[in-house]
Computed example of a mutant assay.
Amino acid sequence: MPMPVFAIPFPVINPVALELGPLTVKWYGLAYVAGLLGGWWYSRQLVSAEALWGGRPRPKAEELDDMLLFVALGVVLGGRLGFVLFYDLQRYLARPQDIIAVWQGGMSFHGGLIGAATGLYLFARKRGYPALSIFDLNAAVVPIGLFLGRIANFINAELWGRPAPDFPYAMVFPNAGPVPRHPSQLYEAFAEGILLFILMALVVRAGSFRRPGLTAGIFGMGYAVARIVCEFFREPDAQLGFLFGANVDALSGGITMGMLLSLPLFVAGLVLVLRSRKATA
């Protein structure tokens, strides 16, 4: 297939950010660390702003170090188990020893979200805070990690987009053949990261923390919509393909696992938003 005139060659970037003797630090790992630390820093700013909470209980700034540990463990364990269960179960049933081989790649956002929510619930119980308020705080900062994670996906030249031979700014990815494709990682970084961060910042400043569950609910709905839209441009995982309705030549065709997993997240978010209407501002 001939390359369009304006197709963009992939800007090859070394996935290893830093080498210290036998130790290698990859951009993907740095994205996780930077996302967690960025969320921790932003959380400190949010819990220190009394006007945002209207007297609602929330963690003290010094307690967020403990919360970060719960989130980090939940994200890593949940993300890995989510990938195993949702995206490649047959492989891991045949080779269960590979489940712990996280250096080979394979993390699921939806699994990481479940893991993080579990960790946050345990943190809330331990510290005696309302779980919904803890979820709200973290929902406001998650887009930071999402943005950095998708940029790391782009640097790693993974999770590339569907073929787009007629799109003037399509990109030819290494290991994806000569066909120009949508740079879907950048679409997701923009939608799930930048746009969702702006949305969450606006609702928080409009007083959403005063209605427990509202911020988390809006995040769940917002992420689900952003992910489903971006999935129309993203090539499905090779081991799964399209679950049904496959038609790689049309944006209207092909249901993916990412879309399917986002539907219950949207419903859960809607339930939280409706529930929050009963709270007193």
Rank of each mutant, 00 (worst) to 15 (best):
P2Y: 14
V5R: 10
V12T: 13
I13D: 09
N14I: 09
P15K: 00
V16D: 13
G21V: 04
K26G: 10
W27Y: 14
A31W: 06
A34V: 11
G35Y: 04
G35E: 02
L37R: 04
V47M: 08
E50W: 11
A51F: 11
L52C: 08
G55S: 10
K60E: 15
E63M: 10
D65Q: 12
L68M: 13
V75T: 01
V75L: 13
R80M: 04
L85Y: 09
L89F: 15
Q90N: 14
Q90C: 11
R91G: 03
P96N: 10
I99E: 02
M107F: 14
A117C: 10
T118P: 08
T118N: 08
L120S: 02
Y121R: 02
L122S: 02
L122Y: 13
F123C: 03
F123R: 06
A124S: 12
R127P: 01
G128K: 02
S133N: 12
S133F: 06
A139M: 05
V142C: 11
V142H: 00
F147Q: 07
N153R: 00
F154Y: 13
N156S: 03
G161I: 01
P163D: 11
A164T: 07
A164V: 06
A164H: 00
A164D: 02
P165N: 11
Y169C: 06
V172R: 03
N175F: 15
G177Q: 07
G177K: 07
G177E: 00
H182A: 01
H182I: 04
P183E: 06
P183A: 11
S184A: 13
Y187P: 00
E188Y: 08
A189V: 01
F190V: 05
I194W: 11
I194E: 12
L196C: 07
L196E: 00
L196P: 06
L199P: 01
L199K: 02
V204R: 09
A206V: 01
A206S: 14
S208T: 13
R210M: 12
R210C: 05
T215S: 13
M221N: 04
G222D: 06
Y223H: 01
V225A: 13
R234Y: 12
D237M: 06
A238M: 07
G241D: 14
G241L: 09
F244Y: 12
A250K: 15
L251T: 14
S252N: 09
T256H: 06
M257T: 03
M259L: 05
L263G: 03
P264Q: 12
P264R: 05
P264E: 09
F266D: 02
F266Y: 09
A268R: 03
A268K: 00
A268S: 11
G269L: 04
G269Y: 09
V271A: 13
V273W: 14
R277W: 11
R277K: 15
K278P: 01
